[in-house]
């Protein structure tokens, strides 16, 4: 079989375009969508804590968390529908159990440490989410370990060095960073 260089070039372009599209839609890279969902949740939630009263900000957080959770479930179902992983059944249940246990442990830790002020409470949640993120990264996708470490480092820097603008810091660098990272992964893949 012989083809011209132009045909070879076209075939390679078609392959690369298909791989890019497939990675976006059927591979694990669809996880960038979770960053694009949770980025605005953090951005708006922390902005609310910086500029609104505690009562209004707490309600806003609750609504945003519910919205983020519902969207994540919908995305998870849609992403999982098209691809059947060779070991997904067992690992899927283990991952779900891990997050449930992590939630229970974080609840227990917060209860023991109570009363906490808003910043301390936010840091508890960020640290537990960070642990979960790192665990998922180490098990499933090593690249996300670095994002988890970076996010935790940002939160710690804000908490200890910039307490006056901690929420604003987390809104812009945490939430904004998630959105930017999600969009970057989307464009790169």
């Amino acid at each position: 079989m012989n083809i011209s260089p132009t045909e070879a070039e076209e075939a390679l372009a078609a392959i690369h375009a298909m791989m890019k599209k497939a990675r976006r839609t059927i591979s694990s890279s669809g996880a960038y969508l979770f960053l694009i969902v949770w980025g605005p949740v953090w951005l708006l939630g922390f902005l609310g804590q910086q500029f609104l009263s505690q009562e209004v900000a707490s309600k806003a957080w609750m609504i945003l968390d519910i919205l983020g959770g519902v969207l994540s479930v919908v995305l998870g179902v849609r992403l999982g529908r098209g691809v059947r992983r060779s070991s997904s059944t067992a690992s899927g249940w283990r991952i779900a159990a891990f997050w449930l246990l992590l939630f229970l442990y974080s609840f227990a830790a917060v209860t023991i440490a109570w009363p906490l002020d808003g910043k301390q409470f936010a840091m508890f949640i960020i640290l537990f989410v960070g642990v979960g993120w790192l665990a998922m990264g180490l098990l499933l996708d090593s690249a996300s370990v670095w994002w988890g470490l970076a996010l935790t480092a940002l939160a710690l820097i804000g908490y200890f060095l910039l307490p006056g603008i901690f929420y604003l810091w987390m809104a812009i660098l945490g939430g904004g960073g998630m959105i930017a990272l999600g969009l970057y992964i989307r464009s790169r893949w």
């Binding site: 298909m18 791989m19 990675r23 059927i26 591979s27 529908r81 059947r84 992983r85 060779s86």
Partner: peptide
């Protein structure tokens, strides 16, 4: 060619609907 390009990005043993 496009079918194979889409399938090879999946892990070994992974299947697409």
């Amino acid at each position: 060619l496009r079918i194979m390009a889409a399938l090879v990005i999946l892990g070994a043993g992974d299947e697409v609907d």
